[in-house]
Simulated scan of single mutants.
Amino acid sequence: MAAADTGRMYRKEKSIQLKSSSSALYNNLSLLRLPDKQLAYFTTVHGTTVNIVSASSDGLSFSHRQLQVKEGGPAISSSIVTQMYESDGSIMVYWHALDVMEHLPARMVFARGIAAASGRFICVGMSSGPVLVFDIPPKGTNITVSEVLEEHRDAITDIAAELGQAPDGAGDVVTADDSGTLCIWSSGEEFALLSKIPALGCTCSSVKLWNGIIAAGYGNGQIRLYEAATGVLRAEVNAHARWIYALDLAPLTGKLLSGAEDSFVHIWKLSKNLDTDDVEIEHCHSECVTDTQICGARFCDPDGNSFAMTGYDLSEIFRYSQV
């Protein structure tokens, strides 16, 4: 159930300019915080270019870098390539090519959806449905594909890992696809499928996990909340008038951020009654960027006291902080 807006909670800060605009991709804004260096890295994608902006904690200093994927080479033309870089984009530490020659020429091939799980795995979704699980060593670059999860039959849209503490019996990884199917996994030496939430007739474009709750955003503008242990639906809200493109969760407070094609970003508050297991969603705040298709939105801190967003064909990142 959604409550009425409780008033203006955030104010607009200085925006971040980008070298190129953001493409219309789901969840097209990433954020990596490095508190010990007083830096935050913002990343968006434009075609085959990755825009990286490092911002100082005071928001006054910015540094830009662009990563280019070279097109036309034999590795790119015949394979999906996953590349892993140092946090500032300065050094590529690993790349992985997956042969896709078996696919029909008319079918678009891509990798989409990425999440870190259990402190040692990185999961990457594929357009044909599989999810690659990369095992990341504590030191060095001896990265390997430890497992391939083959439960989905449609293109992966997003992958999420537990942001808080997973309750006993609850999955800590969830994968979503174009049909709207969700798969809930328990990670470990081997991934185990715990539950499968069937398709709803529309795409699940973005998904997040927090304290045993799955938050899923759909193409019909709905947000649905499920139990990560059983897959049972606990709450739903008609959050947006158009397609949801991005969700994010603040792990310390349970705030949920949603952005959509309708030009709105909404902030919600999730809560769970430990006695009854009821899950509630309360609306807290809205921002509108007129005539902008929101394609990326992220909280900038674990409490959800600040957030950033960008939109299709927009060459900047808008930032907001709590009043």
Rank of each mutant, 00 (worst) to 15 (best):
S258D: 06
V148E: 09
W210V: 08
H283G: 05
T6G: 06
L104K: 12
L314E: 12
S20E: 05
H152V: 08
C300I: 05
R234N: 08
T43K: 15
F42R: 04
Y320F: 15
Q83M: 09
I281D: 05
M92I: 12
M92T: 11
D178P: 03
D262I: 04
C295Y: 02
R107N: 09
A115P: 03
S23Q: 08
V279A: 14
S63G: 07
T230D: 04
N273W: 06
D278I: 01
C295W: 00
A192K: 15
V131A: 08
P138M: 02
L149T: 08
K272M: 00
G171S: 05
H266G: 04
S205G: 12
K269M: 10
F191H: 13
V323K: 14
L34G: 00
V289I: 13
A216E: 09
L104V: 05
L256A: 15
A4D: 06
G169A: 06
D158V: 07
D168V: 11
A166L: 06
K269R: 07
L252M: 05
D291W: 11
G254Y: 09
L39R: 15
A2G: 07
S258M: 01
R112L: 09
V81D: 00
D248K: 14
G73N: 13
D36V: 12
I122M: 07
L182H: 13
E86Y: 05
V53D: 14
E261G: 00
G259H: 02
L249N: 11
Y41G: 09
F191G: 07
F299L: 07
I91D: 12
E86C: 08
D177I: 03
V323A: 08
A229F: 06
S78F: 08
D168P: 05
P138V: 00
Y41I: 15
R33E: 13
P138R: 02
A111C: 10
Y41T: 14
L32R: 15
E280A: 12
M126Y: 13
G171L: 05
V53S: 10
F62G: 02
T48I: 04
R234G: 04
A4F: 05
L200G: 03
S54V: 10
L29A: 07
Q322W: 10
D291M: 11
G212P: 08
S87D: 06
L247R: 12
G219M: 01
S23K: 11
H64W: 14
E282N: 09
D275P: 01
D58N: 14
M1F: 10
E261V: 00
G304W: 07
A155E: 14
D158K: 14
S179N: 04
S15C: 10
T43R: 15
T48D: 14
D248V: 13
T49Q: 09
E71T: 12
E236D: 09
G311E: 02
V265C: 13
T157L: 01
S23G: 15
L18Q: 12
P130Q: 12
N220I: 02
F318N: 11
Q66W: 01
D278K: 04
S306G: 11
T230P: 04
S263E: 13
S21P: 03
M108N: 07
I159N: 09
A308I: 07
D154Y: 07
A166T: 15
C123P: 06
T175F: 03
A297I: 08
L67H: 03
H266C: 02
A308M: 10
T49A: 03
A246D: 15
S22L: 00
Q83P: 02
